[in-house]
Nucleic acid binder design. Structure first.
Lengths: 335, 335
DNA sequence: TTGTATGCGTTATCAA
DNA sequence: TTGATAACGCATACAA
């Protein structure tokens, strides 16, 4: 039952090459094409991937490298959102997707992918500014699109959200609602998101002519680091805290309330990510919403693009975000 | 720099065929093998996958199909646990893994996989007793291992946890601690886990000579369905509630406490899954722990096994579970 | 527009 | 134990 081009050729009275042209969109006379397509439909033929790869040098499969704790893959909606977006786009082009998770050493992952030799290109999550795995992948000849970016690298293709602009818009919102002592509990130093959001914060503060001395505390994207930072910030006198993500904000919120501070009356609070729980906090959290599936989709598109026209130079996409204003910054009384 | 067997052949002074034998474990004279392996190591040669697939008919890649509700994708550590277990085992055999998620129609997924034609076998999550996608996959010639099982099918290979025995052991624990009016808030009818756990409940009750009339309420694996069931069960007089999963139990717990019922003094409560939050409820929840990564690993092993010896008949693995006893059934006073 | 012929890099079947 | 050599199924340059 496994048909070959030769079978189809004899069935439709044309040569093998013509069938191939019909399949790959070559130029074929309309009548001939119709006849061949009829046979194609009738037989339900589907080409042998291996033979096609061998002859063409392309596999029709792209790799996705997510070097993270596998336990986070489905727990953190971020990664499943990315996968969702990617697979939608790739499916349109009948392109397969292979997934590498980060449960092995980086070097192993790298050689694995190269030895495997069955991907035409890669999409790689790059959440750390400095990551040997990513450096290795970029150095290899495999066309690669990053999700996140490399600060110093202007040759790599990437898709990222505009963390800087998002953070700046948070600060502006706080300034617009009358806050002046605006603190930032940062993400992990060395992480793309952490550093960019910090930069955006500084830009926003500078734009407003506000000081930042003593108002930045280093966090780690987790709730406890948010809670820890609160006492120090209260000592210094703040009327707003912008946290590097929602988890940090939830920890900060708990600590603020434990200290008898009212949000937002005494201190406004902002997160980043708009995870599910953000709207269910009390008060609901003002935060930044990212279109995560869109990020995955754009990365897939960028890669397909790169594969189609290898000489076109790097693709760089910076996606906008959305400020979601809730009661943690404006309260009921401001309305 | 892309080496072929011919290159290696001339470099090591043997024929192409001999190199291939060295690579694939054929019989080669020790001295010859040593010489070839030296060249292999020196050059860092790695075979062309497409050519290998074409000649051998095998791809060295297995597919993983997780056709689940997108909403579950975001909350359930179950799937990442499975992936983790699988990828560990597959990595040992240098076998690649392709992932299909459930964001497209079942029929599309099915034809996709077949047309793609580059997997040697499949691992498929089968959480519904009746699922056209799974039926289609089983009907196809691709060797397939299910996670979960088909009630009527005795030819399919599968890995599942022993839900029936687990549920029976829950009932026995409740009976052993003096409960007699034991209710069950079930999972979704038609789901493998829901139905098997219900069967185990009935078996346990029958073993203990206890009646079940009016004590089973249909739930849907979510917290609200647990909360909804509680008033009805309290009316009928119960001293224990076994919920089909932890989420249902958390809903039930809230409703019980809202009704002024003390857990476990008045009513004992049991869940299933031992998710993170189960131990953090008040009181901590007695539940069933599954070794999810083990399930994934066993599924991968079963599939590799099936690929190695296709005539060996179906592989069936039923994994044991562990009853985790906490204060929601024994309380502090029972100690 | 179509057909012919060759090559892609392995594996596997024969002989030697 | 080893070496020729024929598949494997398709894409593609070239010729017609």
């Amino acid at each position: 039952m496994t048909l070959t081009l030769d079978d189809l050729a004899s069935m439709s009275g044309v040569s093998r090459a013509t069938i191939s042209r019909v399949l790959n969109g070559g130029s074929v006379a309309p009548r001939t094409r119709a006849r061949v397509e009829a046979v194609l439909a009738e037989t339900g033929y589907s080409p042998n991937r291996a033979a096609r790869s061998l002859a063409s040098g392309r596999s029709g499969v792209v790799g996705v490298v997510m070097h993270l704790e596998p336990s986070l893959l489905f727990v953190d909606p971020y990664f499943s959102g990315l996968l969702q977006g990617m697979s939608d786009v790739l499916a349109e082009r009948a392109t397969g997707m292979m997934l590498w998770l980060g449960n092995r050493s980086k070097q192993e992952t790298l050689t694995d992918i190269q030895r495997m030799g069955l991907v035409d290109g890669l999409i790689v999550t790059a959440h750390w500014l400095d990551d040997p795995l990513v450096d290795g992948l970029l150095a290899s000849p495999i066309p690669t699109v990053l999700i996140g970016h490399r600060r110093e690298d202007h040759t790599a293709s990437y898709v990222d959200v505009d963390n800087v602009e998002a953070a700046r818009s948070v600060v502006q919102h706080l300034v617009d609602t009358g806050r002046t002592r605006i603190a930032h509990i940062s993400g992990i130093p060395g992480s793309v998101a952490g550093e960019d959001r910090l930069v955006g914060y500084r830009v926003g503060m500078a734009d407003a002519g506000l000081p930042t001395e003593g108002l930045v505390v280093t966090g780690d994207f987790n709730a406890p680091s948010g809670a820890d930072a609160v006492p120090r910030l209260l000592e210094r006198g703040v009327d707003a805290i912008f946290c590097a993500n929602d988890a940090t904000a939830s920890g900060a919120l708990e600590a603020l309330q434990a200290a008898g501070v009212t949000v937002p009356d005494d201190v406004a609070l902002v997160g980043f990510d708009d995870l599910d729980f953000a709207s269910r906090l009390d008060p609901p959290l003002t935060t930044i919403r990212q279109q995560v599936p869109t990020q995955g989709a754009e990365a897939a598109r960028a890669l397909l693009n790169l594969l189609d026209t290898p000489d076109g130079g790097p693709r760089r996409v910076l996606l906008p975000t959305e400020l979601v204003i809730r009661q943690s910054t404006i309260g009921a009384s401001d309305r």
